[in-house]
Simulated assay, not measured.
Amino acid sequence: MRSIATCYSEHAVRVSDSYCSGPLNRSYLSPKLIQSIRNAVSLTYKTRLSSQKHLLITVTWCDKLICQGFWINVSEKMSPEFRNSSNSHQLCKIKGTKEFESCNSGIEVYWDLSNAKFEAGPEPISAFYIVVLIDSTICLILGDMEDDPQVKKVTVGLPIVKFSLVYQCENFSGQKTEFSTKAKFCDSGLAHDILVKFGEEDEGPKNPIFSVFIDNKRVIKVMRLQWNFRGNQVTFVDGVLVDVMWDVYGWFAQPSPSAAAVFLFRTRSGLDSRLWLEEKDLAEKNHDKLEFSLLISASKNPG
């Protein structure tokens, strides 16, 4: 996120803003595009033990060609480089248990993906479970198998603490300029359908537009991306202020297959003095004040 945040003034307060560095003189959209697919999803949950220790639990699902199972990371600070961290563990079996230590705590992970069902991407949508115990406390339960005998056996008699999703990162690859996912912007809200897409203005493919749809309703429309290839606007979801930032310069200006576009959605309370926080700020921010962020990163590389 640092490379995006530095494009803007630290004290920006305008509700809607665009960054302009001159036009990009090239044709942007092609009628023959490779379908974009979701190949990795990372979900970070915050939790607090009875000892008042704050921890972040990150579960990352990858394309099956990369990893048959998932990665798990337990840490005290947010870190985008979870795979390079000594706190990260790759769990490749479809069913099993794992014990390790992290942040001076004992971690136990129980999971079963034997009958998991998938839709569009590497993250299962039903018929699975993941249970994470930290110091013999239930800190995370994912899936829809709470009544499974093994889940009951693992969790019976153990205390449970509240956990909530604070960061969702989705990676796409391919050339088609439509990226869809689901996200909850607050604990009390519903899961919303999010669609990010490029289109064409009346002038043709040299003048693309950028749109964000939430539950099939367009909430953001940016014209003339050849000028507005970086920018930010604001919308409201479930009564929560959501800042939307985009950086599509690499996607349009770089011919290499690794050229990327990045879209960041972040909830913000009225007390926040800045629209965007850099990675170091996010890592140092009080866990109780962490807002929800959704990061969509799209690469043209089909692999």
Rank of each mutant, 00 (worst) to 15 (best):
I214G: 07
I214S: 07
D215R: 06
D215G: 05
N216H: 14
N216T: 13
N216V: 07
N216A: 13
N216Q: 14
K217M: 06
K217T: 10
R218C: 15
V219H: 03
V219C: 06
I220W: 00
I220R: 04
K221F: 07
V222G: 04
V222W: 03
R224K: 15
R224T: 12
L225D: 00
Q226H: 14
Q226E: 09
Q226N: 13
Q226S: 11
Q226I: 03
W227M: 12
W227C: 10
W227Q: 11
F229K: 14
F229M: 03
R230T: 14
G231C: 02
G231I: 00
N232Y: 14
N232S: 15
N232W: 08
N232T: 15
V234L: 06
V234K: 06
T235D: 04
F236N: 11
F236S: 14
V237N: 06
V237E: 11
V237K: 06
D238L: 02
D238K: 00
L241H: 09
L241N: 10
V242T: 12
V244L: 12
M245S: 13
W246F: 01
W246E: 02
D247P: 07
V248C: 11
V248Q: 00
Y249K: 12
Y249I: 11
Y249H: 13
G250S: 15
G250Y: 05
G250H: 09
F252V: 07
